[in-house]
């Protein structure tokens, strides 16, 4: 069974020999400083460098997938925000929101193939496409994208003060995210992973999560299932207040932060659970602790082993190898 077959089988709820160990990309990428050092061009913007880094991540860390991009700013960039593309120590970030009216922002029709960095990602996926290693296309969810386009505090207030307007904005964003995701599939993505760190239960609360997050995830998952592509959704923070609403999204796997108890999640959810090796431990922890945490995830029943959140760029490759070797060698059995 090769790595692509294993991941796709797990996502289809079929039996496999052992859990895959992956780091999808996007918010949860393993393009750490040690890997992106000495580059001529920025791996977040240049196609060749993006492909090169995706391959380097795969070869050096032991994660069993290719994943692009390595940031969360590709999705909001077409909507008039300023992005700092980062360097080998700091990930790209939004430095200036769009201050125009939402109605005006929404006038732009976004064609992913014509947007500069979206097209870079699409071409990179196409180059990475192969028969053995799964290629994961990563998306920033609609709430995190929308709150990267306009001031997040303003948007959160609108959930109460102007719910229809913000709902429509989320819809606009989600619709172009769907177009982008479908283009990723056409380019060769085997799996789509969505992270939406601004949409946690802790920030929004259960009611808002059900009203403003769930319907849009459902829609995007439906569209991807129509073309037979599985979806992983990463949920940040504690999921206590939203755990039951997660069952409303028919996703192939849910990935969780390290604060989430996997046994609890497994007992309440119908789908695969992915996670959740503590990323601070991966950054600063000792070898035996990393092994113990990885083993614990497997024993508690994760279907896919992965870091619990975005990795610090200062994380050493060796630490990641400890985790991936442990899963791949099957020493826990």
């Amino acid at each position: 069974m090769n790595q692509k077959e294993r991941l796709l089988k797990v996502l289809a709820r079929k039996e496999v020999d052992r859990p895959p160990v992956i780091c999808p990309g996007g918010m949860m990428n393993a393009a750490v400083s040690e890997i992106v050092t000495d580059l001529e061009k920025n791996h977040n913007a240049d196609k060749k460098t993006m492909v090169q880094i995706a391959k380097k991540v795969y070869e050096l860390t032991g994660f069993e997938n290719y994943g692009v991009p390595f940031c969360m700013t590709v999705e909001c960039e077409p909507c008039g925000v300023k992005v700092n593309l980062g360097n080998k120590n700091i990930e790209p970030r939004v430095t200036e929101y769009n201050k125009n009216q939402i109605e005006d922002i929404m006038k732009k029709k976004i064609n992913p193939k014509q947007e500069k960095r979206m097209s870079v990602v699409l071409e990179a996926i196409n180059k990475l496409k192969n028969d053995n290693i799964p290629v994961i296309g990563n998306l920033t969810g609609h709430i995190s994208t929308a709150t990267s386009i306009i001031d997040p505090l303003q948007s959160f207030k609108m959930l109460h003060k102007n719910p229809e307007k913000i709902y429509n904005f989320f819809k606009y964003v989600n619709n172009y995210l769907i177009d982008y995701a479908l283009e990723m599939v056409k380019a060769g993505a085997d799996v789509i992973a969505i992270s939406d760190p601004s949409a946690t239960g802790e920030i929004l609360g259960a009611k808002n999560f059900e009203k403003f997050a769930v319907p849009f995830y459902k829609k995007i998952v439906e569209k991807l299932h129509e073309v037979d592509v599985p979806v992983i959704i990463h949920i940040c923070g504690n999921t206590k207040v939203i755990i039951d609403s997660l069952n409303l999204i028919d996703t192939n796997a849910l990935s969780f932060d390290s604060v989430v108890n996997i046994e609890f999640a497994k007992s309440r959810l119908k789908t695969n659970v992915m996670g959740n090796v503590n990323t601070q431990l991966l950054h600063r922890g000792r070898k035996d602790k990393i092994i113990a945490a990885t083993k614990n995830c497997i024993n508690k029943g994760v279907d896919i082993v992965a870091p619990a959140c975005g990795l610090s760029m200062a994380t050493q490759i060796d630490k990641l190898k400890i985790m991936t070797d442990f899963v791949r060698e099957g020493a826990y059995r």
């Binding site: 505090l153 959160f156 207030k157 959930l159 109460h160 003060k161 802790e202 920030i203 929004l204 609360g205 808002n208 207040v241």
Partner: peptide, 14 residues
């Protein structure tokens, strides 16, 4: 106590 979340707190503070 997790009855109010960020949106509610922001509006109350306004």
């Amino acid at each position: 106590e997790e009855e109010y979340f960020l949106p509610e707190v922001l509006i109350c503070s306004d």
